[in-house]
Simulated assay, not measured.
Amino acid sequence: MNPLWLMRMAKWAHHPPSLRQVKIGAAVLAAVLAIWGLEAAGLWPDWATLERQPRVPRL
């Protein structure tokens, strides 16, 4: 495990995030899971899906 993560966890233990930050994080996570669920169920619209363009080789 990266030591920077240990430092971040120690910081969060000593100074936990505010309730507002937790609510924002939960809302973002819920939105991501909702989008993923719609896409997995086949309900995501085609106009919102990106299509990869073929890569042009550089000369």
Rank of each mutant, 00 (worst) to 15 (best):
M1F: 14
N2T: 13
L4M: 15
L4H: 14
W5P: 06
L6M: 15
L6A: 15
M7K: 14
M7G: 15
R8E: 13
R8N: 14
R8L: 13
A10V: 12
A10F: 10
A10D: 11
A10T: 13
K11Y: 12
K11T: 06
W12I: 11
W12K: 13
A13K: 14
A13D: 10
H14Q: 14
H15S: 15
P17L: 06
P17N: 00
S18N: 08
S18F: 10
S18Y: 08
L19V: 12
R20A: 12
R20P: 06
R20D: 10
Q21L: 05
V22H: 05
V22K: 06
K23W: 06
K23T: 06
I24Y: 01
G25T: 06
G25N: 07
A26L: 12
A26Y: 03
A26E: 10
V28I: 11
V28E: 09
L29W: 09
A30D: 03
A30E: 05
A30S: 08
A31Y: 05
V32E: 02
V32P: 01
V32T: 04
L33R: 00
A34E: 10
I35L: 03
W36H: 03
W36A: 04
W36T: 03
W36D: 02
G37I: 00
L38N: 02
L38Y: 02
A40M: 04
A41V: 01
A41W: 02
L43K: 02
L43A: 04
W44P: 00
P45S: 01
D46T: 13
W47M: 04
A48S: 05
A48D: 00
A48Y: 05
A48L: 08
T49Q: 05
T49F: 05
L50V: 12
L50C: 12
L50D: 09
E51F: 10
R52E: 12
R52Q: 13
R52F: 14
R52M: 11
Q53N: 08
Q53I: 09
Q53R: 07
Q53P: 07
Q53Y: 09
P54G: 09
R55S: 11
R55G: 09
P57W: 00
R58Q: 09
R58S: 10
R58A: 10
R58D: 08
L59H: 01
L59V: 07
